[in-house]
Design a protein around this nucleic acid. Structure first.
Lengths: 181, 181
DNA sequence: GCACGCAACCTAAAGGTGTTAGGCGAATGT
DNA sequence: ACATTCGCCTAACACCTTTAGGTTGCGTGC
């Protein structure tokens, strides 16, 4: 799987194929079918690896931090990982079937986001709403940045990132009460 | 291209292929190569169509609205479109090369988001930061929801959505000043 | 009316990827 | 010594992509 992950970073997750992997490894294609069930399995393996990897970095970054400090730390783990390992990051976004997703490191990610919210005063169900919002921003921003959405215009994407984290921090501290509807 | 878009909604954007399209149309595969340059071109065509379609709906929804009303209207256009036309929505997320992207309806989307911010008091460069944040949330939330991220747990995803829009509205009204750094 | 050109379709063929089946040889455990 | 297992192989099939080149039919302009 590791070889697949490196391949993904090099040529893009979409181009990760059994054939290409065999070519790099200097073996014939069918030889890999002893190690990988099928093409889908290869991609899923890379995705699971990336999710684990990312979760490990997240919990390391979160250790000993709270509040905005924790928010920025986790957010930067995602952004930095995507820039360092674009193929792996793309893999981590791959839709997994329910069973695989539950067995993956995916749940650790939402737990980490929830952990950040301990530094803010949010009761359920607002805490879950906030988890979903933060997840959306992390995923959305990083993926837009990666596919070049913000690349060719001022201000710099890095500047937007820190200001967005400022704004999210302020928002979480002043989370609006449920209005009458 | 329209046939390709319908195909995408039916079987998923990733499965949109010249062969499958030919099969549905009842013609032989090479016949389609008079209408489509290649497979990539087919997918790009669907993406451009979806971007246009989405931009049209967005500007219709925005007409005559301002402030939070406008925010919710545009946000719901994205979410509803993704639920109604998942294949087209996925197509709209396809990375395009710079030239194609500039010629697409993509820029209209950022213009629409920027238009929403006229209802809030934001000067540059904060306005751009906010555009990027809103884009990230719209894209991130809808894509996570679509791939089943929030599907199997309370509270309901629709509830989170309205609360997130509440929070974004509050955040834009109280956008934090640039701190000393 | 008729020849021309073009549009839309076809067959043939070649190259790439995914996958299964079955075989061969070397290392390993008994 | 022998059987098992592991890692690799060849052969073969199915499917998708793409190019080349031929057919048909219809509308236009002469």
């Amino acid at each position: 799987m590791l070889a697949g992950a490196e391949l993904a970073d090099e040529i893009g997750f979409a181009a990760v194929t059994v054939s290409e992997l065999a070519r790099r490894a200097g073996v014939k294609v069918p030889s890999l079918y002893s190690h990988v069930r099928n093409s889908q399995d290869l991609r899923t393996g890379v995705a699971l690896l990336a999710l684990e990897d990312l979760a490990d970095r997240g919990s390391a970054a979160l250790a000993g931090r709270a509040g905005k400090d924790a928010l920025a730390a986790l957010a930067n783990v995602y952004r930095d990982y995507a820039r360092e390992h674009p193929g792996r990051y793309a893999a981590a976004q791959m839709p997994l079937d329910t069973e695989t997703a539950l067995g993956s490191a995916g749940p650790r990610h939402s737990q980490m986001t929830r952990a950040i919210l301990r530094g803010y005063d949010l009761a359920e169900p607002d805490q879950t709403h906030a988890v979903r919002l933060l997840g959306s921003v992390f995923h959305g921003y990083v993926s837009l940045e990666l596919t070049g959405g913000f690349s060719h215009s001022a201000p710099d994407s890095a500047e937007s990132w820190v200001r967005i984290l400022d704004a999210l921090d302020a928002m979480l501290r002043a989370w609006p009460p449920t209005p009458e509807r």
